[in-house]
Write a protein that binds this DNA or RNA. Structure first.
Lengths: 274, 274
DNA sequence: TAAATCTAACGCTAAAACGTGTGAACTTGT
DNA sequence: ACAAGTTCACACGTTTTAGCGTTAGATTTA
């Protein structure tokens, strides 16, 4: 099977097979477009057994992406789809990597840093072993998993209710925990940034990010270029709340100019990979 | 290099090779007995390369079990050794399993349960998927990893400072988080139990366990028979603080009687495996 | 009740992770 | 400065895990 299944190209109607997460992603998109599809159709389209379709849909259902019914599945709210962690993970990795490298350069060894449950922050976390000793605070389970065994890092976890969709801890308990702390640097990412505000589409996430901004001595907004000049449902904070905005070098010059015109400090991280 | 390095027999004075964790455990014991040993000696004794000895000692050092110095390693406080998670994990698994099965029988579907960072509690966690829906609260990272993907379980994590030795979150932040909650059932285990009190050797752990006891409607003490009739440095709480004490069936009858004479409810969990 | 759908259990395969040794480069103590 | 000690980077074999399909049994729907 799939001799040609290598790139990420192919914008044809046929989503085309891919393994594991990427197939599920494509399957979700397929369901979104069609609105509602049968098991058999999905199995044929993606060239896998019906059993596998079941398993995939189970995963997507617990993520809130689709709704299963006897014989098939139907689409769910698009907002969930857009903010889905599995999707975000694969997107703009080169940009996020560049941004992460830049952000760690802003962090002093011996200081404390807090970050949220964004994939951009996760990219930052991967580099934190370079600036030890360090105190790290986060509500992102994957980052906790990653940093727990690292020597030289004092890890503080923010508790709260676990959200499978984000793989992080949110809710009242998390906000309370954030408010009980103070860190030298706070790194957050949001899903949309205009030239006046940072935005996010989910209530619970917004509350946590706001609490983080209030408890950091210095706040860094780390966003890749796809987030610029866009808006989402909730305002997280005015851009004045951030001391630095880090974007990648694929951001259009006008967008960066517009931010600088408003007296924001904008750092541009050079993207190296293709 | 070792042509003969294959079997696993040999019960001689030679601690004898074993792979991974068990060798490290034996290595720790060896260091404890000798007080201080050289790299070369360890390498020869356990029939591994010096490099591997280095790696093993690094692990043991981060766990606080030994102290490395140029050329070898020396012993560390025995209390840390005794309470070490890696050690506890392998001990009394059959008993813990029996206790766990009994404890889950005490938990009602739909209720909330909180538990600490003990291996006994972890055994309980493995069975929690049988009593869904359920709200689970814990500060034990391994349990969080385990329960995060389980459908039907609403997971709340207690934050705090991460302690590699226990693989859990402790400290002021954790105590605060516990005090902000209330659960129907609290399950804790302690390292020693007399007929009047439950004990534990570590300060931070004691504080968290106490907070947990104060925030549970019903409190369960789950301990295997090796903990009975023993004491440790800190008193966690008088046994009156617990509504039920669960022990395994290998506990001596006199010990159980003594507890019952003091009007404690003692449940005995039948051990099945050898 | 019959047909379709779903789930649970098993086994296979490929990929990833782990543990280990080797030799080279780097540190440290004397 | 030299030798012992330590760390790094890589290779290689083993073990674990993840993903998928198949079959058989359970459940649902018409």
């Amino acid at each position: 099977m799939g001799i040609e299944g290598m790139g990420a190209q192919q914008v044809k109607s046929r989503p085309r097979a891919a393994s594991g997460a990427s197939r599920r992603q494509a399957m979700a998109e397929h369901v979104m477009r069609q609105g509602s599809v049968s098991m058999a159709e999905l199995a044929e389209t993606f060239e896998v057994s019906v059993m596998t379709v079941h398993r995939d849909l189970d995963v997507l259902e617990t993520q809130g992406m689709v709704r299963k019914f006897r014989g098939g599945a139907s689409a769910q709210a698009t907002s969930v789809f857009e903010s889905n962690i599995a999707y975000r993970k694969t997107a703009q990795t080169a940009e996020k990597e560049a941004i992460a490298r830049h952000v760690v350069g802003l962090i002093e060894p011996g200081s404390s840093v807090m970050f949220d449950d964004s994939t951009t922050a996760l990219a930052v976390a991967r580099h934190l072993s370079e600036v030890t000793p360090l105190t790290v605070v986060t509500n992102f389970l994957e980052a906790i998993r990653l940093l727990a065994p690292v020597p030289g890092i004092r890890l503080m976890a923010l508790g709260g209710e676990y959200y499978p969709t984000h793989d992080s801890f949110l809710g009242v308990a998390c906000v309370d925990a954030v408010e009980a702390m103070n860190t030298d640097t706070v790194v957050v990412s949001t899903s949309a940034v205009s030239d006046r505000h940072a935005f996010h589409q989910e209530q619970e996430i917004v509350l946590v990010k706001r609490a983080m901004l209030a408890s950091g001595t210095r706040c860094v907004l780390a966003v890749d270029h796809t987030k610029l000049d866009r808006v989402a449902l909730h305002r997280v904070a005015p851009l004045e709340a951030f001391d630095v905005i880090v974007v990648d070098s694929r951001a259009p010059a006008e967008a960066i100019e517009r931010l600088r015109d408003r007296h924001h400090r904008v750092d541009v991280a050079e993207v190296t990979e293709p």
